[in-house]
Design a protein around this nucleic acid. Structure first.
Lengths: 338, 338
DNA sequence: TCGGGATTTGAAATCGCTTTGGATGGACAT
DNA sequence: ATGTCCATCCAAAGCGATTTCAAATCCCGA
């Protein structure tokens, strides 16, 4: 069932049918209804490729997953994004790549073959090479995160600096002095921001951040465990942890237990919570204090902002920093008296 | 830069250039080289929509994620799939849905608008309604898993029954008699299969499976924790767990610790491991005995099988059961003597 | 009754590719 | 010299929508 058949069926021209279906004003309400009825009765839907060719719009956004960087966050983000895009019938194209070269090649392809109208970058670096590339290619894009050295671009980010600063400050208020930061991979903007916040809090109380209490790892249970275990074995172990993710937190938690310590009493922890449906800070035992910001909601908003970008809004006007909640639960307590 | 321009540039017809680029035999090697060189020099790539319209092939596979069912597995699977599809330039379209109705609508849309050449279903039920729908729609598809009551279809599955049976048998060999099965959601084919394997092992030793030792939950740390905690608090607690996923296992592990027990000594556990790069059974403490099967590899293979399906192979000839490794590590030990 | 503006409808061009059905020319055998 | 057969190449017809430009119809006041 294509447009021609449908039009023939109705005794109308393709033009009119197309207009009726796409909500153009120059078609009478009566025919619009007739067309809509026939279309749904006959199960007609415009052929996506034909429409794309004719309009020049791909009706799809792209997202490249780097094998070393994707994890549970990704699906959660995608979920939010897809939810927003569903009603506009915009598709999401995902590709995975193994290297920066492959990633660049993927963007070039996508741009040249006009497969997508825009792409989403996540976990950027300051002055991210991909931003430069996409600018050169003229392919619209939006960063989930920021790339501060790079040319102006649209982005949505959470206030990592503020969140980490508040978390650290809270631990300081509780009397903690040796606070560990188990951060994300070195060099990424968000990890820098978190370290900034951490340092700011300590420095404001004249505490020198100890190099040995700062770790950069990927966000996994395993790395959390290893990192925390090493820190706890050392001479001056931390009495509190600021964890970069809930995965990391689970590993740190195991290490604390393995060291014979009790979370919330001997050692405190505040973890960053991206709000996974299957990993609830409230239901942990003890429940976990967190800096919380839904990554799913971010995905939804990114979809919204991308629609605005394509509608003509300037990238320079698309900047959004989301505040982060600090939710105190049982995993944080005063420094134990020795 | 489109085909016409490129052809003009070369002093050739669009026909010849198109053929040269697509590897058709009726073009001389000399011109093929000349064309290839010019194309790469000028950065020409065929417009995806135009090609799709002309060929009638969408060059994309679809995958619908149900919000309640996706998790870390999904991305891992997608990663494998994308890797295989990259070189054939087949895209992956993902959509998320909140309900079965939305999912059905998505398939109908996709079929009518010819957005995808095939779709992938995961975590099916026996006699899955989606299989019927896709058959009716004439949209090719492949199941990751099986749907036993449904009409013939292409599928790739792992041997869940065998894996669980072996795991259970191993625990029985170690002397365990009260073995808990923390399974996936009730009703899904794979969960049924696992329960089958579990029951088979017990029954072969004249042990009646206790209803209280079988749980059906989603695969999350939290549910693992809750389930295990309840079981351990009861009168006759299990001495061993068969866990449906590594997430579940982490939660069970916490519950075991919380109960003051030691994994691998007081209580044993074998978990199913889909092989996440960020959750390594070897590196846990104690290391985790597992039934292992890479879900990423499955994704890759599914891509391969789908290509074959579209190449004309009959769905009835596309059935693959993967054996599952049983990897024994430190989390399994003999029943403690009371 | 007629003219003119507004409202509806259509014919045909267009998007950029693939592919069918020839054309062209050279090599080779007759 | 002529016909046959390849090897190459091309013009033009799709693919199924959108959109431009123009025509037909309707309504209403003069």
């Amino acid at each position: 069932m294509n447009l021609k058949e449908l039009a023939g069926n109705l005794g109308l021209s393709q033009t009119t049918v197309s207009r009726a279906l796409n909500g153009y004003p120059e078609v009478s309400e009566a025919t619009r209804l007739r067309v809509a009825e026939a279309a749904s009765r006959l199960g007609y839907r415009a052929n996506a490729s034909a429409r794309r060719l004719a309009t020049g719009r791909a009706g799809a956004f792209g997202m490249v997953l780097r094998t070393e960087a994707y994890g549970p966050h990704t699906v959660e983000f995608l979920g939010g994004l897809a939810e927003r895009l569903f009603h506009d019938e915009v598709d999401i194209l995902v590709s995975t790549v193994e290297s920066a070269e492959e990633e660049a090649a993927t963007y070039r392809r996508a741009a040249a073959s006009k497969k997508v109208d825009a792409v989403i970058l996540s976990s950027p670096y300051p002055d991210d090479a991909r931003v430069h590339l996409l600018n050169d290619l003229g392919l619209p894009y939006l960063l989930h995160g920021r790339s501060e050295g790079a040319p102006p671009h649209a982005w949505l980010d959470i206030d990592n600096t503020g969140a980490t600063e508040r978390a650290t400050n809270h631990l300081l208020d509780l009397g903690h002095r040796r606070i560990a930061l188990v951060n994300g991979p070195k060099g990424m903007t968000f990890a820098n921001h978190r370290e900034d916040g951490y340092r700011a809090a300590l420095t404001s109380r004249q505490i020198a951040p100890a190099r040995s209490l700062i770790a950069n790892t990927i966000f996994t249970d395993e790395m959390g465990f290893r990192t925390a275990q090493q820190m706890l074995e050392r001479g001056e172990p931390p009495t509190a942890f600021v964890a970069g993710s809930m995965m990391t937190a689970l590993g740190i938690f195991r290490a604390i237990r393995a060291a014979g310590l009790e979370l919330g009493k001997d050692v405190s922890m505040i973890a960053h919570d991206d709000v996974f449906p299957y990993l609830n800070a409230d239901n942990m035992v003890p429940s976990m204090s967190t800096t919380r910001s839904s990554i799913r909601a971010a995905g939804t908003r990114v979809g919204e902002l991308l629609m605005q970008l394509l509608a003509g809004k300037s990238p320079a006007d698309i900047h959004e920093v989301w505040p982060v909640d600090l939710v105190l639960r049982e995993s944080t307590g005063p420094t134990p008296v020795k």
